[in-house]
Simulated scan of single mutants.
Amino acid sequence: MNRNILILAGILGALSVAIGAFGAHGLKPLLIDNGRVETFETAVKYQFYHTLAIFGLGILMLKYPNKQFKYATFCMVLGILVFSGSLYILCLTNLTVLGAITPIGGVMFILGWIFMAMGAKKTF
């Protein structure tokens, strides 16, 4: 399981770089036309930050496996999918209704950090 989390972090990290580069180069005219350059950058940043957190959780779980770290990982992955994913779609389509689900991803990120803290408290 912990190995899979580290593999997942590697894949998410590669996707973060690829999506960021594609946005900066291939999508730049569309993002400018839609007025969404900053929104796209926010989506990439949050994806990258939480990918690094998932990597850290995977490392922690190699030595200290506990449910809270697993829950934190799940919440952060779901946060990336919902938060960053909804922002990517918003940037590409300009469908503002998608902005309504973005905060759900933010809540998942917050829960992920809370579970990480709970796991650290339990472990250390």
Results as ranks from 00 to 15, higher is better:
residue 4 N to G: 14
residue 5 I to E: 10
residue 6 L to S: 10
residue 6 L to K: 10
residue 7 I to W: 13
residue 13 G to T: 06
residue 16 S to N: 01
residue 18 A to L: 14
residue 19 I to R: 01
residue 19 I to K: 01
residue 20 G to N: 09
residue 20 G to L: 10
residue 20 G to M: 11
residue 21 A to N: 03
residue 22 F to L: 13
residue 22 F to I: 13
residue 24 A to C: 03
residue 25 H to P: 01
residue 27 L to K: 06
residue 28 K to Y: 02
residue 29 P to S: 08
residue 34 N to L: 01
residue 36 R to F: 09
residue 37 V to R: 03
residue 39 T to K: 07
residue 42 T to A: 10
residue 42 T to C: 02
residue 43 A to N: 01
residue 44 V to R: 00
residue 47 Q to S: 03
residue 48 F to G: 11
residue 48 F to M: 15
residue 50 H to Q: 10
residue 50 H to C: 07
residue 52 L to F: 09
residue 53 A to P: 00
residue 56 G to K: 00
residue 60 L to M: 09
residue 61 M to C: 03
residue 61 M to N: 03
residue 63 K to W: 14
residue 64 Y to K: 15
residue 64 Y to P: 05
residue 65 P to W: 08
residue 66 N to K: 05
residue 67 K to W: 11
residue 67 K to H: 10
residue 71 Y to L: 15
residue 72 A to Q: 02
residue 74 F to C: 05
residue 74 F to T: 12
residue 77 V to E: 01
residue 81 L to T: 12
residue 81 L to P: 05
residue 82 V to T: 13
residue 83 F to W: 07
residue 84 S to T: 05
residue 85 G to N: 07
residue 86 S to N: 09
residue 87 L to A: 02
residue 88 Y to M: 03
residue 91 C to A: 15
residue 91 C to Y: 00
residue 92 L to Y: 07
residue 94 N to L: 09
residue 94 N to E: 05
residue 94 N to S: 14
residue 97 V to W: 13
residue 100 A to S: 11
residue 106 G to Y: 02
residue 107 V to G: 09
residue 109 F to P: 03
residue 110 I to F: 14
residue 111 L to Q: 00
residue 115 F to Y: 12
residue 117 A to E: 06
residue 117 A to L: 15
residue 117 A to Y: 07
residue 123 T to F: 09
residue 123 T to G: 07
